[in-house]
């Protein structure tokens, strides 16, 4: 009995620690549950990135299932996911862009709005344009409300305007199949 305890206890302790550390080895440190899941989108009032006369409010994203994709022309990973997003659009998925503005920010760049618009047009022409429209997030203030850590990130919004899924990083076939596809079709049929 005593011998079992002397060898068994440290062994059990070691195995427990090993399992705990193994899990840490394969977990994704960037993955975090958004605080917005199940919550309605925070109120917004944003202008179109191409035309500041057009304004969008929360009602622009209700009535249909939408994907909000946070992106920017300066972001390499966003360029990688553009073709796949365009593919989704062709399958009938609504994709709305939230333009994560960086280049006109004095802290990061000095590009004028016109230059940014030309860059957007060029990029969408070469890599595909998945977006119904693009909302300009000036100073990334709305991104802060959404808890965005950087571009690209994607939110799945249901018909009532509630956030149902949040993905950090690029959206590709694998992520779509494992994370989005089922919930998306469920929400579509609601």
């Amino acid at each position: 009995m005593k011998k079992v305890a002397i060898f068994g206890l440290p062994l059990a302790f070691f195995l427990l620690a090993a399992v705990f550390l193994m899990r840490g080895l394969y977990s994704n440190p960037a993955e975090r549950d958004s605080t917005l899941i199940g919550q309605p989108l925070p109120p917004f009032q944003l202008v179109d990135v191409m035309d500041e006369a057009i304004q969008y409010r929360n009602d622009a994203l209700t009535g249909e299932v939408n994907l909000i994709n946070v992106w920017g022309t300066w972001c390499q990973t966003c360029a990688v996911e553009l073709p796949f997003l365009t593919q989704l659009k062709d399958q009938g998925v609504n994709v709305v862009g939230l333009y994560h503005e960086l280049d006109s920010d004095p802290a990061f760049g000095v590009k004028s709005v016109d230059v940014i618009r030309t860059e957007i047009t060029e990029m969408l022409k070469t890599l595909g344009n998945p977006y119904r429209f693009n909302m300009l997030d000036e100073g990334r203030r709305y991104s802060l409300d959404l808890g965005v850590t950087g571009a690209p990130e994607t939110f799945l919004i249901d018909k009532s305007g509630k956030v149902r899924l949040h993905h950090i990083g690029d959206l590709n076939q694998r992520v779509w199949q494992s994370k989005f596809a089922r919930l998306y079709s469920e929400l579509e049929s609601e």
Binding site: R140, L144, G150
Partner: peptide, 11 residues
């Protein structure tokens, strides 16, 4: 120096 850290600092 991450963008999001700068944004949070500003806020």
């Amino acid at each position: 120096n991450a963008v999001v850290a700068k944004d949070i600092t500003a806020k």
